[in-house]
Simulated assay, not measured.
Amino acid sequence: MPLFRICGDQKVEQIKTQAFSRERSLQRLIEKNLNTLLGIRFVASEFPTGDRQRGRIDTLGLDQDGTPVIIEYKKTSNENVINQGLFYLDWLLDHKGDFTVQVQRALGKDCQIDWSNPRLILIAENFSEYDKYAVNRIGSNIELWIYRLYGEDLLYMEPMNSVSPTKSRSTAPEGKPNNQDQSSGGTRNMIEYSVENHLQGKSPEIIDLFKQLQERIFSLGEDINEKAVKHYVVYKHGKNFCEVWIQNEKIKIWLDIAPDVLNDPLHLARDVTKVGHWGTGDVEINLENDAQLEPVFDLIRQSYQQTV
């Protein structure tokens, strides 16, 4: 995608693309800005996978919802990047204890980990149609991101595939904390979370209200991801911008936007920065009827635009 600078007299000049001198330069830049770029907390760099499964994971992180994240970088895409990433993802599921210890060292012992659906992010200058097809067929939580370096100080990043709103799988048995492995072998006794789970037992009015809200959220862009976790449904565009908790008589929404930035003329939102709540955002809204849909959606749109 060409990028142009607007100069004097309404003339434009194209900014030429540059290349990172080494793959490691790209990695260091993204690691230093993980939260800003992808909404992920940095855990470790070049993490060794041990003597039996020799390798080094480029970047380990924990996203806004407490989901483990593996990030692999390539200056250019090649045939091994997907297989390599899948190998590390499988290793992670079999070594949850090692990851948990590293998270506690980096982020503190109180940090919660949700093992329901670990993420694999692959970042390269380009991916082929075969790469995108393979990722869609595999069905794991794999994201392809492309980057461009313009000049010396402009970085562009864009997701190349949209992770389908599939059921999330928990590796912890019912009633057990998700951040604890239940056996030394890393058993995978799955609990499935889905949007349908959150709609069970709700009134037809609330279900219809959610469906209308869901349709509007997806209309914001083709690359929006929907993810059902234990207590709510997450909508993200790279980073979280909205979390939805479907209750019996209303829908509670949290927005990942600074309260003082939000334009809320009807005063529908409240600042919950210092109040305990499920979502990752610090702005809370209650949606109770159809009449509130449009003004509430306008607030959601503002949060989404922070990620574009």
Rank of each mutant, 00 (worst) to 15 (best):
Q214M: 02
I142G: 09
W145T: 05
Q180E: 13
S194C: 02
P165K: 06
E129A: 14
Y133V: 05
G185N: 06
I191C: 01
T187K: 10
Y232G: 00
P159W: 07
M160W: 08
M157N: 01
V135K: 00
L154C: 10
S162T: 15
S164V: 11
N161V: 10
W145K: 07
Y130K: 15
Y156R: 10
W145G: 05
L220E: 03
F127K: 02
G175C: 01
P204I: 10
Y133M: 05
N197G: 13
Y193H: 14
D223K: 14
N178T: 12
R216A: 11
S194K: 03
L199E: 05
T171L: 15
S183C: 14
D223A: 06
I191F: 06
N136L: 00
D181N: 15
Y150C: 10
I206F: 06
E215N: 13
P165E: 10
A134S: 12
M190F: 15
M160H: 09
K211F: 04
N136R: 10
I146A: 09
S184N: 14
Y232E: 08
K202V: 11
I191P: 00
E152G: 09
N161P: 08
H198V: 02
I123S: 03
T166E: 11
H231R: 13
L144M: 06
A172Y: 04
I207A: 10
G151M: 03
T166P: 01
Y156E: 12
S128R: 05
K230R: 11
R119D: 03
E226W: 02
N189P: 01
N161E: 06
Y130N: 13
Y150Q: 08
L213T: 02
K202Q: 12
G201S: 13
A228Q: 08
Q182E: 15
E196Y: 08
R119P: 01
R169N: 14
G186L: 03
G175H: 00
F210P: 05
A124M: 01
S184R: 14
S170K: 06
A134Q: 12
E174Y: 10
N225G: 01
E152I: 00
N178Y: 06
E143K: 12
A228T: 07
K167H: 12
R216P: 02
G201R: 12
V229I: 15
E125H: 13
T187S: 13
L220F: 03
Y150T: 07
L209A: 07
W145F: 14
L144A: 05
Q212A: 09
S203V: 06
Y156D: 08
E222D: 12
Y130D: 15
T166C: 08
